[in-house]
C-alpha cells in the first residue's frame, strides 16, 4: 500500500501517474468524480489500483456516523484493500489524500469532525502503508 499526500493542487495525481507509468487503461477511483467509496474489491483490476481524494470519502463518512465508528469503518476498509493487495505479489493500492489538516480549527462541529477523522485516518494509513510520499509542487519527499 502506498500513501501519497500533500496540499491541494500540488500535482499528486500527476506524480502517481508518472511514478507507476500509468499510461494505458488502469483502475482509478476518484472521489472527485462523485464515485462512492470503493467497498467492492471485485471491481478492481490490474496491478496498480489508485484511490484518489480519500478526504472527500472521509467527509462523507462523518455525515452518516460518529467519529469512533468512522475510524473503525476506515480501518476495516484499509483491511479489505490490503487483503486484495496481498493476494498477488504484483498488486499495489495507491491512496491519494489531500492534506486539509493544517488550518484554523473551525467553529462548526461537522467541519471539525472532518479534519479530526482525516488526521486519524492518515495516521492509520501511514502506519500500514509500505511507502509514504509527500508531494510538493510535483516533487516527492519519501517519508516511509
Amino acid at each position: 500500500m502506498h500513501f501519497v499526500t500533500g496540499g491541494a493542487y500540488n500535482g499528486k495525481s500527476k506524480w502517481v501517474k508518472n511514478f507507476y507509468g500509468l499510461t494505458e487503461d488502469h483502475c482509478w477511483k476518484s472521489a472527485y468524480d462523485q464515485t462512492k467509496i470503493p467497498l467492492n474489491v471485485s471491481r478492481f483490476y490490474g496491478d496498480v489500483v489508485v484511490l484518489e481524494g480519500v478526504e472527500q470519502w472521509l467527509k462523507g463518512l462523518t455525515v452518516e456516523s460518529g467519529l469512533e465508528e468512522c475510524r473503525a469503518i476506515w480501518q476495516s476498509l484499509l483491511g479489505i484493500w490490503r487483503t486484495w493487495e496481498s493476494e498477488r505479489h504484483e498488486r499495489t493500492v495507491v491512496i491519494i489524500g489531500t492534506d486539509i489538516t493544517k488550518g484554523i480549527v473551525p467553529m462548526e462541529k461537522e467541519e471539525r469532525d472532518w479534519r479530526d477523522l482525516t488526521g486519524w485516518a492518515y495516521q492509520d494509513l501511514a502506519a500500514v502503508a509500505d511507502r509514504v510520499d509527500v508531494i510538493w509542487y510535483g516533487l516527492n519527499q519519501q517519508l516511509k
Binding site: 496540499g7 491541494a8 493542487y9 500540488n10 500535482g11 478526504e55 492534506d99 486539509i100 489538516t101 493544517k102 488550518g103 484554523i104 467541519e111 472532518w114 509542487y137
Partner: peptide, 20 residues
C-alpha cells in the same frame, strides 16, 4: 505557500491556478 485547509468554492479557481 498554498493553504492546507479544505478549499471553499470561491477560492477554488485561484488555488488551482496558483498550484499549477
Amino acid at each position: 505557500e498554498l493553504t492546507f485547509e479544505p478549499l471553499t468554492s470561491g477560492v477554488e479557481s485561484y488555488a488551482r491556478q496558483l498550484g499549477e
